[in-house]
């Protein structure tokens, strides 16, 4: 367990040093993030002004809050979907994947630890966004912290299952992953990220209910904006847990297949 933690910390330190070696990119990224939040906030403020949104009443009725939480959630979906496969691709490009494996670090640890920095950056990003928006745009939040964190955690695990499958495909194709593309696109359109799914035609809504983010987003918004208790979001959490039981083993299986195929083809560090 100690070794696990040591490895985890060392991966984070490695990524930190690589990130600060691109100083201008880091500064531009932070400034860009700030202006992105402002743009988003002003747009929502403009739409909210003089209008009411009864369809958002169960989330407190604020459009800003609705859009911001949707945006933050979507960035977690993107990270859970993409960080593993981009970690694999990055190690393939730098040629370090084989040496990481030779260090007797299991492949699952390599991709999780390599992707962890992205989750940390996203969390930092999310906290900054929430702070800026609540100060500048007076976003009303009533956060149930424990529940919000729990929902984010199971969402990440659930979507990471699909992310693992995506990384397994990248092991073989090197570039181009239909699973990741399809899942992220469908989530953006069907999961209620920027509008409630009640606005979708009935026959399309059926597909919304097949996507884990639909449940996660509903539960997270309630926990973040209205301080809802576990009892009021438990049905979404149970569905999410059930989906996790399905996505994680499938993701691990597909990844293992891709990893073994790369070893059979001798293409571990090809890209």
């Amino acid at each position: 367990m100690k070794n696990f933690f040591v490895k985890f910390v060392n991966f984070v330190i490695r990524d930190f040093f690589i990130a600060i070696s691109y100083k201008i990119n880091l500064v531009i990224g932070m400034i860009g993030m700030f202006f992105g939040v402002l743009k988003f906030g002003f747009m929502a403020h403009f739409l909210q002004f003089g209008n009411s949104f009864p369809s958002l009443s169960s989330y407190g009725g604020s459009l800003i809050s609705y859009l911001i939480t949707g945006g933050i959630f979507m960035s977690y979906v993107n990270v859970a979907m993409n960080s593993f496969k981009s970690a694999i691709r990055s190690e393939q490009i730098s040629g370090t994947l084989e040496y990481l494996l030779l260090s007797d670090t299991p492949i699952y640890q390599i991709i999780i630890f390599s992707g962890i920095s992205n989750f940390l950056w996203t969390t930092l990003d999310a906290i900054s966004v929430l702070l800026v928006v609540s100060v500048i745009f007076d976003m009303k939040m009533n956060i149930n912290f424990g529940l919000s964190l729990f929902i984010i955690l199971i969402t990440i695990i659930c979507i990471s299952g699909i992310g693992f499958a995506s990384a397994g495909i990248i092991m073989v194709t090197k570039k181009g992953d239909p699973i990741g593309w399809l899942f992220t696109t469908l989530t953006g359109v069907l999961s209620g990220v920027f509008y409630p799914i009640s606005f979708l035609p009935k026959w399309i809504r059926f597909f919304s209910y097949l996507l884990p983010p639909t449940y996660a987003l509903k539960a997270l918004r309630k926990a973040l904006l209205t301080g809802s208790s576990f009892a009021s979001v438990k049905s979404q959490i149970y569905v999410l847990l059930l989906m996790t039981i399905i996505t994680v083993p499938i993701g691990v299986f597909v990844f293992k297949k891709g990893y073994d195929r790369a070893r059979v083809e001798g293409s571990l560090i090809e890209y």
Partner: peptide
């Protein structure tokens, strides 16, 4: 290709060495 280009030789070795516990 087998090291991290942006890191120094020392930091690369520190990283890989740490993985061996």
């Amino acid at each position: 290709r087998s090291f991290y280009y942006r890191l120094s030789g020392y930091r690369n070795l520190l990283f890989f060495g740490s993985l061996y516990g």
